[in-house]
Design a protein around this nucleic acid. Structure first.
Lengths: 220, 220
DNA sequence: GAATAAAACGAACGGTCGTGCTATTCTTCT
DNA sequence: AGAAGAATAGCACGACCGTTCGTTTTATTC
């Protein structure tokens, strides 16, 4: 069974349009999602490379082969883990900003949500960090479908940032602004999780506010 | 035999002060460095976690057990790989900025060198990226000596950036500046290596120049 | 050059990994 | 309720992993 992620509506659905997780979902579809959610938690703690069949099956109370049957291969599982994590990201970070009707303010809301996501990932119970971001660096030089998936997600996210920047700061150079914002999030994760810097958020927000106030201008 | 890395002089030496690599170095010391250099190349391509004994030994034309004998464990090897990579970083990125006698200009030189390092790591032959940066995200939630080493290096580097920022931009908030610069380097690596964005450097430098022109100020 | 120490090897171990098979249990649909 | 099909379990395999051990080769020291 092939499942695809939708860009809008933040839900998974099968090829024929039925919702996963809903009561009309098939047994296999439901456990499939259960597996992926647990796998995202594992990936949050040890990276996508740490998503391994045996231990994952044990965490779920099922057999390794039973789990394996849901995915053609481990690589396919890892790709789906990334997709599922991106889904979560959309739900938690991107979707809520639509409630802000003052569109120029959406950039700040997006960034704030992003930091929340990095500090308190809904999965991993405080012991994990964003698996997608980790995959950016884990697979950046490892060719294969996992790398491709990570690259696609990073490109989509980067486009979104540019778009939000264009609306919020019409006179700014959107590429330079996006580079700075993207970097602030990456650096924030590093300072917060690796260095355990309690002031990480304050420093990140100060830099972000300064960027909004004096952004790089076009043709400067 | 215990080897320690020096912060100054960018060379390895043994506990009794003899230089490694010099003609008076012992056989074991020389091959030890050879192993680490090759291991850094491997780590550049696949991350520190990809440093594995068998394939590494084969690349070096030696036996797995002979290689293993140089390190008490695989973890110790990985830690030393990180140390060696940090050594290289010091040689290529940090040491040369001392030649700039106009100290405020050192920040820009440092950043430029950093981007050079990320784009053309002396090891990995174009197929690898900075292993230390990758380790930041690979091990940020994996307790152990490898994580500790990565954390220590990130803290040292972050301190250096703050110090350079303080000299270059005395009126600026050094923490916010450091966060932005650190982030720009991380984001640059992502755009250059994962997204293969040919314009990455131009965008990064534009953002950096804008930061120097309008940095976040203290107590703003 | 002989004695001693260091370094490298080869083979083997226990363990874990991903992946095929076949059989069994459970859903789902008529 | 029963047939058809999906989902899961059990088991085995080959490959690779880190590590150990005893032996052999190579450096170093006297």
């Amino acid at each position: 069974m092939i499942v695809k992620a939708l860009k809008k509506g933040h839900s998974l659905q099968t090829e024929d349009g039925r919702e996963l997780l809903g009561p009309d979902a098939t047994k296999g579809e439901r456990t499939r999602v259960r597996i992926l959610d647990e796998a995202v938690a594992v990936a949050s703690e040890g990276g996508v490379g740490a998503v391994t069949l045996g231990p994952l099956a044990e965490r779920l109370g099922m057999s390794k082969s039973g789990l394996f049957a849901h995915f053609r291969s481990k690589e396919a599982l890892q790709v789906d883990v990334l997709k599922r994590a991106a889904e979560r990201f959309t739900e938690v970070v991107i979707a809520p900003i639509r409630e802000e009707k003052d569109k120029p303010k959406r950039l700040g809301l997006f960034f704030s949500n992003w930091l929340d996501w990095l500090e308190h990932p809904s999965l991993g119970a405080g012991r994990g960090s964003c698996p997608v971001m980790a995959a950016y660096f884990e697979f950046d030089d490892v060719p294969g479908p996992v790398r491709d998936q990570a690259a696609e997600h990073s490109a989509q996210l980067y486009d979104l940032i540019r778009k939000l920047a264009r609306i919020a700061l019409p006179e700014a150079d959107e590429d330079a602004v996006a580079a700075t914002i993207d970097g602030l999030a990456l650096s924030h994760l590093m300072r917060f999780r690796l260095m355990r810097d309690g002031k990480a958020r304050a420093h990140t927000m100060k830099a972000f506010d300064a960027l909004l106030k004096n952004p790089p201008l076009k043709d400067a």
